[in-house]
C-alpha cells in the first residue's frame, strides 16, 4: 500500500493529527477537521490505513504473563517498613497533618489529645535533653552510620534516597538546600536531614522538602516531627 514517496507526504496540520484520529483521541472539532481532510487527501487516506495497521500490531498482546505478585509483595513490604520507621509517611496521617488549622479545630477532642501528647513528649524530651547535657560526654569515636543526635532546635526532614544515587549528586543536592545528614540510614533506609544553619531554617522547610521531592534521586521526603527527632 505504500505507493507514495516520502516526498509526497502531506504537510497539513490535519495530517499531523492523524495518529490521534486513529487512536480515537481527538475532540469533536479536530475529528471533524481530520475527517474533512481525509475526504480530499489521497495521501492521508493511505496513511490512515497504514497507521491503523501499525497501531493494531502494537496493540497485539503477546501471551507473556508478567507476574505482579512478587513486586506487589515487595512494595507492600517496603510500605510497612517505611511506616514503622516514619509513621507520618502513611498517606492518611500525612493528609491529616496537612489539614489547615481551622479545619483541625473542628475536632476539638483530637486537638486536646494531641496537646496532651505534645506536652508529654515535650516533657520527656526535656528530661532526656537535660540528662544528656548533664552527662556532657563527647563520644570518643564515631562510625560512619552512628546515630548523631541532631540539634534540639531547628527543622528536620526525613528522606529516602534512590539506591543508585551517587554520593556526588547527593552532596550537591544537600548543599543546594543547605542541608546535611544528621542521622541514618535506618533499617528502612531513612535519613534524617537538618539545615546546616538552624537559624536560617525558618520558612525554608517547605521549599527544601519540595526541592527534594522534585529530585529524581529522592524517593521520599517529609518534614520530621520535632518530638520524634528529639527522642531518637
Amino acid at each position: 500500500m505504500n505507493n507514495h514517496l516520502q516526498s509526497e507526504r502531506c504537510e497539513e496540520e490535519a495530517a499531523r493529527l492523524l495518529p490521534w484520529h486513529v487512536a480515537g483521541r481527538l475532540d469533536a472539532a479536530d475529528t471533524a477537521r481530520v475527517t474533512r481532510h481525509l475526504a480530499r487527501c489521497t495521501i492521508c487516506r493511505e496513511d490512515e490505513v497504514h497507521e491503523r495497521a501499525i497501531r493494531a500490531l502494537m496493540k497485539t498482546e503477546s501471551s507473556v504473563d508478567y507476574a505482579p505478585q512478587p513486586g506487589l509483595a515487595r512494595t507492600l513490604s517496603r510500605i510497612d517498613e517505611l511506616e514503622r520507621e516514619s509513621p507520618a509517611s502513611t498517606p492518611a496521617i500525612a493528609h491529616a497533618a496537612a489539614i489547615p488549622a481551622h479545619r483541625r479545630s473542628a475536632v476539638p477532642w483530637l486537638a486536646a489529645a494531641a496537646l496532651v501528647q505534645a506536652v508529654a513528649l515535650g516533657a520527656i524530651g526535656t528530661v532526656m535533653f537535660h540528662r544528656q547535657a548533664g552527662a556532657n560526654q563527647e563520644p570518643r569515636y564515631a562510625t560512619l552510620f552512628a546515630d548523631v543526635t541532631p540539634p534540639a532546635d531547628g527543622e528536620h526532614i526525613r528522606a529516602v534516597f534512590a539506591p543508585d544515587a551517587t554520593l556526588g549528586a547527593l552532596n550537591d543536592l544537600l548543599a543546594a538546600n543547605a542541608l546535611s545528614i544528621v542521622r541514618g540510614p535506618s533499617h528502612a533506609g531513612v535519613y534524617t536531614l537538618a539545615f546546616t544553619d538552624p537559624h536560617e531554617a525558618n520558612g525554608r522547610l517547605d521549599r527544601a522538602v519540595a526541592a527534594l521531592r522534585a529530585n529524581g534521586q529522592v524517593r521520599f521526603a517529609e518534614p520530621a516531627p520535632h518530638d520524634e527527632v528529639a527522642l531518637r
Binding site: 493529527l17 495518529p19 490521534w20 487512536a23 483521541r25 497507521e51 501499525i54 502494537m58
Partner: peptide
C-alpha cells in the same frame, strides 16, 4: 508512538 498507539493517550496527555 508508544503513548499514542499502545496506550491511547491524547496529544495533550
Amino acid at each position: 508512538l508508544e503513548f499514542t498507539y499502545y496506550m491511547d493517550h491524547s496529544c495533550e496527555e
